[in-house]
Design a protein around this nucleic acid. Structure first.
Length: 822
RNA sequence: GCCCGAGUGGUGGAAUGGUAGACACGGGGGACUUAAAAUCCCCUGCCCUCACCGGCGUGUGGGUUCGAGUCCCACCUCGGGCACCA
């Protein structure tokens, strides 16, 4: 700190990082009277490749935000942890035949080390890793709560399954609303009592929020696992896994599911007040895909009379009179029952089988020509006018959306038009009617449908949380008791998938003998609630203590990548709403505010990756330029949410800025007054950090420094400047700070608006909207003063020669515009 | 195809409807130095000009306005999401 000492970032940064740790500078206070602020980063998956310079960008932004708010006096919770179950570690295990646990621990340690040199203000004593049994005990616990719950759509909340059993015992299904998009049976209390245990289990399974069922899944043979839709990409010959690019096919398998669809409407409604980026809200809205329409029933008839009823879903009930045919999905469940009355059944049967063989991707590819077959011998009767129309099956109708049946109105629907044209079906133009009136008139009902589907909650792999229940020999499912948790992952001899689509756990004899579930939970299980664990990370009695949850409540600011819009951010909201319904958390939403950071690409404009040889390692940058320079640069580079290229020249500018701060410390004058520029900078930096406009905050710090260098600056001003710099460059700010305690706890400067007013203002003088001159006037100059001054300028006089002034517009402090006619 | 978002100097970018290009990188010139690095000072949107003056400029074309990068309409390009959802 002595005059003319060299700026040695290595020494300074190491020194303060150690000091902060031993002093516990960033340790979060226990719940107290102070106002809380929970500032969270999306925790990383610790991959073997390590961090590149793009990864910390979001963390730096949230750290700047956290540091300012900590200085402002908030009790800041700013933790970090690791999402440490996942496929890469599993593949490592398969390749090396070693347990993925120690490998994961090593990666976590490596990651942490890389993060530490950047100087984040994390409270590391709250670190969590999802693969540790102390943690996943509570992931399993939440799973069991979901298993033991159903959604009461009358009360619009989740309730314990025992309460459903009580309702069934009392009055059967009479007072229970059916589950959305599920064919739950109806029965009386008496009938319920007569059901066997297995029958009861099967019925309850249709209500549980975590339930077992069969589903067509995306099966990847090479990876030996089922993949979520967002883990699949289009390959040249069909769908392939995002990781590895292996082919993916459809396969029906036993699965566990999460009944997220029960929450569809609340997930949509509660989106509105959130302080989230608009595009993320839009993406979730589209994903949930609410559509309101009518269910209308057509009577199916054969030559000998009525056969059955078919209900179609339509958003265009107003076009009911224009219906010229009805189409069912090829999977429509009653087709086989009707084979005796369908005169061309063999043709129909061949079509159904050919569709079944197609992969969904092929079937639903956008511009594929529609195909279909008429069900001969059947007609459908339009409930509005009694017209008889032909009945078809076609692959463009999806069995799992709406009712699996649609009405064809070629006059008003492009798709129907194409289909009708291809198969020479009638196209008729009929007047439109009122949607609601016609729906009522024909005895239909107004309904709401969602595109969102229930989420598959099982993976056929080893490295995930075991699902905590057993299948007894008599077929009954026995969930584990809380005190039996965690159900730890057993050791296995081989991590290879079993080949028949089951998890490696299916080869562990004892495990299977005990009836344990061989599927494990998907990657998103542990990440759907981790923010709650940070509130009270070592609690052994609950996922977090009541006191901690009541104090911390929810995340005030969540920072991470936009790629989690339909995954993590949706699943977390769902789990959180469930926990809210059951009284475990006090808030309806987990993340009040959200910001997305942009990616940093290579300086060649490509994605930063080993493949292109354009990866910049933050460790190297920190060594060469220092963490402070890296932090300042990543914030200065451009808007926080923009994707930007890395620039090795660019960081030099930030390094220069830091060094100039260092040198200025040796050139302080004895000025006492707080300068105008400083007040301006306090205002700008404070507002910009608040709004995540970090780039302009840094720029205003640079402007302030430029001015200090030009005009000189005293000790007092300089120290305040350091406080403003501290969130961005915490090490140098601490080093040059003269206060007794850490600068990072030293309060946040306030500005006085009085000092923001300039004595003199320079405004532009326009003629017909074009700037022709400038004038500098006192801040108190009246409109008239400005007019007189402007009109007397020689340059302006020239422009006004031979023309008449029509109008003069004065915008105080900005501009004067003289409007003339020639 | 549908739904979002974005197009500004050589580069990253800045700009409550009010002087477009802040800040920084790069480039040019100068000072210091035996020299180089570092540092400091000046210039740097394009065209014309020695210079002044001037003209043109925020993807394209229209419009609203005294005044448009900003608002409205149409189009083009790029990025993201969804995709036979009835």
């Amino acid at each position: 700190m002595k005059a003319s000492s060299q700026y040695n970032h290595l020494k300074i940064e190491k020194k303060w990082q150690k000091n902060w740790e031993t002093q516990g500078t960033y340790k979060t206070d226990k719940p107290n009277k102070k106002k809380k602020m929970y500032i969270l980063d999306m925790f990383p998956y610790p991959s073997g490749a390590g961090l590149h310079v793009g990864h910390p960008r979001g963390y730096i932004g949230s750290d700047v935000y956290a540091r300012m708010n900590r200085m402002k006096g908030f009790n800041v919770l700013h933790p970090m942890g690791f999402d440490s179950f996942g496929l890469p570690a599993e593949q490592y295990a398969i390749q090396t035949k070693k347990h993925p646990g120690p490998f994961t621990d090593k990666l976590v340690a490596q990651y942490k080390k890389q993060l530490e040199v950047i100087g984040f203000s994390y409270d590391w004593s709250r670190e969590v890793s999802t693969h540790r049994p102390e943690y996943y005990k509570w992931t399993q616990w939440i799973f069991l709560k979901l298993y033991d719950a159903w959604y009461d759509s009358k009360k619009n909340k989740a309730r314990a399954i025992e309460e459903l059993v009580v309702l069934f015992e009392k009055s059967g299904t009479k007072s229970v609303a059916a589950v959305t998009d599920s064919n739950t049976p109806t029965f009386t209390a008496k009938e319920w009592q007569a059901f066997s245990s297995i029958e009861k289990q099967n019925i309850l399974m249709q209500y549980r929020l975590a339930y077992e069922g069969f589903a067509e899944v995306n099966w990847c043979e090479e990876l030996g696992t089922v993949l979520a839709n967002d883990e699949i990409v289009d390959g040249p010959t069909g769908p392939v896994s995002e990781r590895g690019g292996f082919p993916v096919i459809k396969k029906t398998m036993r699965q566990w599911f999460m009944r997220i669809t029960a929450y569809a409407d609340r997930l949509l409604q509660d989106l509105q007040p959130l302080d989230w980026p608009n595009n993320i809200k839009e993406i979730q809205k589209n994903w949930i895909g609410k559509s309101e329409g009518s269910e209308l029933t057509f009577n199916l008839q054969t030559a000998s009379g009525s056969l059955a009823e078919v209900t179609v879903f339509t958003t265009r009930a107003d076009t009911l009179f224009g219906v010229t045919y009805i189409v069912l999905a090829p999977e429509y469940p009653f087709l086989p029952e009707w084979q005796n009355v369908i005169s061309n059944w063999s043709e129909v049967d061949i079509y159904i089988k050919s569709v079944a063989q197609k992969e969904e991707n092929e079937r639903t590819s956008a511009d594929k020509e529609k195909t279909g077959v008429q069900l001969k011998g059947l007609v459908a009767v339009n409930p509005a006018n009694g017209e008889e129309v032909p009945v078809w099956i076609a692959d463009y109708v999806l069995a799992n959306y709406g009712t699996g049946a649609v009405m064809g109105v070629p006059q008003h629907d492009e798709r129907d038009f194409n289909f009708a044209t291809k198969y020479k079906l009638n196209i008729i133009d009929r007047p439109l009617v009122d949607k609601i009136e016609i729906t009522k008139k024909v005895g239909g009902s107004i309904v709401t449908k969602y595109k969102m589907r229930d989420a598959i909650f099982a993976r056929q792999r080893y490295w995930g949380e075991p699902i905590p229940l057993r299948h007894a020999v008599n077929g009954l499912i026995v969930p584990l008791k809380e005190k039996q948790l965690p159900l730890q992952l057993p050791n296995v001899k081989s991590y290879e998938p079993s080949g028949n689509g089951e998890s490696p756990l299916s080869r562990v004899k004892d495990w299977v003998k005990e009836g344990y579930e061989t599927n494990t939970m998907p990657g998103w299980a542990g990440s759907s609630w981790y923010f709650l664990r940070y509130m009270d990370p070592t609690n052994a009695k609950a996922f977090a203590g009541e006191k901690a949850i009541d104090y911390w409540k929810d995340v005030d600011m969540y920072v991470g990548g936009a790629e989690h819009a339909t995954g993590h951010l949706l699943y977390s909201r769902f789990w959180h709403k469930f926990l809210y319904d059951m009284g475990y958390v006090p808030t309806k939403e987990p993340f009040k505010a959200l910001r997305n950071q942009g990616l940093i690409g290579g300086s060649d404009g490509r994605k930063m990756s080993k493949r292109w040889g354009n990866v910049i390692n933050p460790d190297d940058v920190v060594k060469l330029y220092g963490a402070d320079s890296l932090r300042v640069f990543e914030m200065f580079l451009g808007p926080f949410e923009s994707h930007l290229p890395w620039s090795t020249e660019g960081i030099i500018g930030s390094r220069r800025f830091i060094e100039r701060v260092w040198r200025l410390n040796d050139k302080l004058t004895d000025t006492k007054t707080i300068s105008k520029i400083l007040h301006k900078t306090i205002k700008k930096v404070t507002e910009d950090i608040q709004s995540f406009s970090f780039n302009t905050a840094v720029s205003s710090l640079m402007i302030c420094l430029n001015e200090f260098e030009k005009n000189g600056v005293g000790e007092k001003d300089f120290q305040i400047f350091l406080q403003l710099l501290a969130p961005f460059a915490p090490h140098i700010a601490e080093e040059l700070w003269k206060g007794a305690e850490s600068i990072h706890l030293a309060g946040w400067p306030k500005y006085n608006p009085k000092f923001l007013i300039e004595d003199e203002i320079t405004i532009g003088v326009q003629v017909n909207g074009k700037v022709r001159a400038e004038i500098t006037l006192s801040k108190d100059a009246s409109k008239e003063d400005i007019e007189v001054a402007a009109l007397s300028l020689p340059r302006i006089k020239e422009f006004l020669q031979g023309v008449t002034v029509k109008k003069i517009i004065v915008v105080p402090g900005r501009v004067i515009n003289i409007v003339v006619a020639e």
